Simulated scan of single mutants.
Amino acid sequence: WAKENGMHISKFEVLEPLKEILPKLAGRPVYVTIDIDVLDPAHAPGTGTVDAGGITSRELLASIHEIARSEVNVVGADLVEVAPIYDPSEQTANTASKLIREMMLGWVK
């Protein structure tokens, strides 16, 4: 359904497919949503859907920076599924705050 309606889906990889699609979105208004469970539980265990095999926090930060360097007009964004109660180490909350900081610094023009 998503592909039939013009949405782009990439499974298991984020940064390289993003680099390919960003030029096609140049100048267009884009809403970015990030689900914290895209990260491997080693990087963000505090989420409702923990699933091994996710990307690293480094790749996600690089993706945020890639969007910031692009000509995409980010009109809104969110970061969802952060569940601090499932992570007494506060690693997920700390990662989430870093991601939001980088989104704000890079995407707000």
Results as ranks from 00 to 15, higher is better:
residue 77 A to V: 04
residue 109 K to Q: 15
residue 100 I to G: 03
residue 66 E to M: 10
residue 65 H to N: 10
residue 42 A to K: 14
residue 93 A to S: 11
residue 107 W to V: 07
residue 8 H to P: 00
residue 29 P to W: 00
residue 60 L to S: 00
residue 57 S to A: 12
residue 42 A to E: 12
residue 29 P to C: 03
residue 53 G to S: 08
residue 49 T to E: 05
residue 105 L to S: 12
residue 32 V to T: 04
residue 4 E to K: 07
residue 43 H to N: 14
residue 59 E to W: 02
residue 30 V to R: 02
residue 104 M to N: 07
residue 53 G to R: 02
residue 83 A to Y: 09
residue 85 I to D: 11
residue 4 E to Q: 14
residue 70 S to C: 10
residue 102 E to T: 11
residue 89 S to P: 06
residue 13 E to K: 09
residue 100 I to H: 02
residue 69 R to A: 10
residue 48 G to N: 14
residue 1 W to K: 09
residue 85 I to S: 12
residue 38 V to D: 04
residue 67 I to A: 06
residue 93 A to I: 14
residue 74 V to A: 12
residue 88 P to Q: 13
residue 79 L to E: 06
residue 39 L to K: 09
residue 6 G to D: 09
residue 21 I to H: 09
residue 55 I to P: 08
residue 46 G to I: 04
residue 3 K to Q: 14
residue 64 I to L: 15
residue 50 V to P: 05
residue 49 T to H: 09
residue 82 V to P: 13
residue 82 V to N: 12
residue 22 L to M: 08
residue 24 K to S: 15
residue 65 H to Q: 13
residue 47 T to F: 02
residue 68 A to I: 06
residue 48 G to C: 09
residue 72 V to Q: 09
residue 31 Y to H: 03
residue 9 I to M: 08
residue 86 Y to F: 15
residue 98 K to I: 15
residue 97 S to I: 11
residue 6 G to E: 10
residue 84 P to F: 07
residue 1 W to S: 15
residue 12 F to K: 09
residue 38 V to A: 12
residue 15 L to S: 01
residue 62 A to H: 09
residue 11 K to N: 02
residue 103 M to Y: 01
residue 80 V to E: 06
residue 40 D to T: 12
residue 36 I to P: 06
residue 54 G to H: 02
residue 109 K to R: 11
residue 23 P to W: 10
residue 60 L to N: 06
residue 14 V to F: 11
residue 96 A to L: 06
residue 104 M to D: 06
residue 13 E to V: 03
residue 82 V to F: 14
residue 80 V to L: 10
residue 75 V to S: 12
